[in-house]
Nucleic acid binder design. Structure first.
Lengths: 346, 346
DNA sequence: AATCATTACCAAAGCGCTTTGGATTTTCCA
DNA sequence: TGGAAAATCCAAAGCGCTTTGGTAATGATT
């Protein structure tokens, strides 16, 4: 059932039916009801492609998920972010189109999305420092919102980010308050912007508290369980092992816990661990009380908000670049405690 | 740059340019080259919406991800499946559109995708027994492939599945061979088809080996880490605890390991665990040697194959329903060993 | 009663592409 | 060298919608 069929069935012109359905004023309220009723009865829904062609708007947002050849890992936060963004799109009547692509092809894909008219805007995932995608998107004139930020980018752009620096600074200072002095950082890959900021927060806290950060207690890799295990195990066997760990993801924190248990150490008593928790739906940090003390911020909520930001930019192109910085919550869990090796109370 | 502009720039008609670009025979090879060259030079790419409108094919496949209100969890295998499917789509020039939806709205969404002409087909995720979506899709005539199967569905349909039954039967029998007699099953929600088949395999193995399966050692819930921990802990404190666990997901298996360690039990020595491993990119089962003995099958590969199946069905509608059953591999890891409580060797 | 807004509708153009049904030119063979 | 066949190209219709630029009828205003 298409517009023409529906309109002849109603004895009206396609023009009037279209206007009635789209809420234009120049149509009798009575006929509007008649049209609306017939539309549901005939299960009529305007063809998206025809509509897009006529209006020039695709009514779709693109997400490019790029897999590097080296470590071709799907970002585990992706599903939850998508789920959040998808909710916003559904509410606004937008579709979400996802392209899976090799990272070196990402620029080409953006150009294609633009020239083929597939989407009205895109969300940029996993930004790096001086991210090359931002100038590309600017130059081709495709609206976008970055999930995260890209240190070093000079031109203004829209982003939504968690305050990673402050989250890691606060977490580090919390450990210092528990008398920890040798605090390890199990970070994500430090070409990623978020990892840079987390390291900065970690180092800032050391400076603020007059502590020296030992470079031997700092690693940076792709955040798997195995990585957390391997790194923690190695550090715990150093002559001067850390008494606390700051970990960039739940997965790696689980690996750290496994390493601790390998060595017979109990979290919260013998060893403290704070993790970053994206509040992923399939990886909850405990059920009632958190297993890990954690800096928490829901990536699903971030998806919702980033999508809304992009949609509002598309609806009002004049508003210009938008920014939003979310603060992570520091949740107290069972994995932190006073440094057992610190002599006495301060 | 659109077709008309390109064609006037070339001094040709839009017809000829279109045919040249689409490889039709009735165009001089020389002009075809001229057109192709001009197309890349002007960065021309046909507008997808216009093309779709003219051809009637959307050149897009839909994935509906439905979140139930009760446990609104994003399926953790989703990202990897999508990544695999996306590769196949990209190769074939198809887009992937994802709808996030409340599960009770899923039928409505399929109807919309069809009547709005958004997609040429869909992949059905996470089928249940007697899944209601299959008759709906049949009735609206939208091509689809189910990732998994739906026990109880009578009409033929296309699916791609792992042999969950045989995987769990083999795993169970492997444990029996190690002298385990009290084997627990930490299963997923048993309205899901895969969970039903896994339970069947588990029970079949008991029957085959003349063992009685204790219903107290069988639970079924959403597969989180916390669930694995809680269930294993409870069972290990029974008067007659299990000596081995069969777990339906890596996440829950990690919880089982945590429970074991809570009680001072070492996996592979005091307690055996076999898990199902979807080979998720962010949740590798160890790096060189598997942590867990596991039944493994790559969900990413499943995505690739399911997408290819659907595309081939769309290209050749006459071929009818397709099916493909993959076998999981049983990978020996560090989490299994001889039952320490079994007296002597058999 | 003539004029003017307002209301309610419609015909037709246009979005950018494909495809049908020619038209024109070239090639080939008797 | 004529005529059929093959090779090239094109005009125009059509995909299903929106939107511009109307027209006709009604009501309000002088």
């Amino acid at each position: 059932m298409n517009l023409k069929q529906l309109s002849t069935a109603l004895g009206l012109s396609p023009t009037t039916v279209s206007r009635a359905l789209n809420g234009y004023p120049e149509v009798n309220e009575e006929t509007r009801l008649r049209v609306a009723e017939a539309a549901v009865r005939h299960n009529y829904r305007p063809n998206t492609r025809a509509k897009s062609l006529a209006t020039g708007r695709a009514m779709a947002i693109g997400h490019v998920i790029s897999l590097s050849n080296k470590h071709e890992m799907v970002n585990p936060i992706f599903a939850d972010f998508i789920a959040g963004a998808g909710e916003s799109y559904a509410r606004a009547g937008y579709d979400m189109v996802i392209s899976v692509v090799n990272d070196q092809d990402e620029g080409r894909v953006y150009r294609e999305l633009k020239s083929k008219g597939t989407v009205d805007g895109v969300i940029v995932h996993a930004p790096e420092a001086n991210d090359a995608r931002i100038p590309v998107l600017h130059s081709i004139g495709l609206p976008f919102v970055v999930h995260g930020r890209a240190t070093g980018t000079s031109t203004p752009y829209s982003w939504l980010d968690v305050n990673n620096r402050s989250a890691f600074q606060r977490a580090t200072e919390f450990l210092v308050d528990l008398n920890h002095a040798r605090i390890a950082l199990i970070n994500g890959l430090e070409h990623m912007d978020f990892a840079i900021r987390r390291r900065t927060g970690y180092l800032d806290a050391h400076t603020a508290r007059g502590l020296a950060a030992d470079p031997a207690l700092r690693v940076s890799e792709e955040m798997t369980e195995g990585y957390g295990h391997r790194a923690a195990r190695a550090m715990l066997q150093l002559p001067m092992p850390p008494t606390a760990f700051l970990v960039s993801s739940m997965n790696s924190a689980i690996g750290v816990r496994r390493a601790a248990e390998d060595l017979g150490l109990k979290l919260g008593r013998d060893l403290s661990v704070i993790t970053y928790d994206d509040d992923l739906s399939y990886l909850r940090n405990g059920e009632d009380v958190p297993i890990f003390t954690a800096a928490r911020s829901s990536v699903r909520e971030a998806g919702r908000l980033a999508a809304e930001m992009l949609l509002s930019m598309i609806a009002n192109p004049e508003i210009g670049p938008q920014q939003r910085l979310l603060e992570a919550e520091l949740m107290l869990g069972l994995s932190t405690g006073r440094n057992p090796q610190a002599s006495g109370l301060r």
